[in-house]
Simulated scan of single mutants.
Amino acid sequence: MTEGRSEDENGNAGFSLVAVLVFMLIVSAIVVPFAVTAKTRLMMANNEIEQERLSLLAEGLANVVSSELADGSATEKLPPDFTPASCRSGEFIFDVRIQDHSGLIDLNAADARLLSLGFASLGFDRPASEELAQAAIQFRGNTNAFAAPAETVTSVGPAQNKMAPFESVSELQEFSALASTPLHDLDDVFTVFSKRGTLGLDHAPSPLRTVLAGASGSGASTTQEAGEAPAYSVEVTARRDGSGIAGQAGFIVEKFPASAAGFRRLSRTPAAEITDLAATTSSRDCDALFGTAAAQILRG
Score class of each variant (00 low, 15 high):
76 E>G: 06
117 L>F: 02
258 A>P: 11
250 G>K: 06
118 G>W: 05
206 S>F: 13
268 R>E: 13
30 I>N: 09
286 C>K: 00
269 T>F: 01
198 T>L: 10
145 A>H: 12
239 R>V: 11
99 Q>V: 00
16 S>D: 09
97 R>C: 06
96 V>D: 00
6 S>C: 09
245 I>A: 09
10 N>T: 11
174 E>P: 01
184 H>I: 14
240 R>C: 11
71 D>K: 08
140 R>E: 01
244 G>A: 15
178 L>C: 00
208 L>F: 01
145 A>W: 13
78 L>M: 02
82 F>M: 13
81 D>M: 06
190 F>C: 00
162 K>Y: 05
91 E>I: 10
137 I>A: 02
54 L>H: 10
61 L>H: 05
9 E>K: 06
175 F>T: 04
115 L>I: 08
222 T>E: 05
66 S>W: 08
234 V>E: 02
249 A>V: 05
71 D>N: 14
259 S>Q: 13
236 V>Q: 05
153 V>Q: 09
105 I>T: 01
179 A>H: 02
106 D>I: 06
68 E>G: 08
17 L>E: 03
215 A>F: 11
23 F>T: 14
205 P>S: 02
6 S>E: 10
7 E>K: 05
215 A>H: 15
194 S>L: 08
270 P>N: 00
212 L>V: 01
241 D>H: 12
134 Q>D: 08
80 P>A: 14
239 R>M: 13
31 V>A: 15
21 L>A: 15
219 G>S: 04
237 T>Y: 08
134 Q>E: 10
228 E>M: 10
203 H>I: 06
103 G>L: 04
279 A>M: 07
22 V>Y: 07
159 A>D: 11
224 Q>P: 06
19 A>K: 01
269 T>K: 03
61 L>A: 07
43 M>H: 14
60 G>Y: 06
247 G>E: 03
277 L>T: 12
135 A>H: 00
196 R>S: 12
294 A>E: 04
162 K>L: 08
77 K>C: 01
68 E>K: 14
187 D>K: 04
227 G>H: 07
87 C>L: 05
15 F>A: 14
232 Y>A: 00
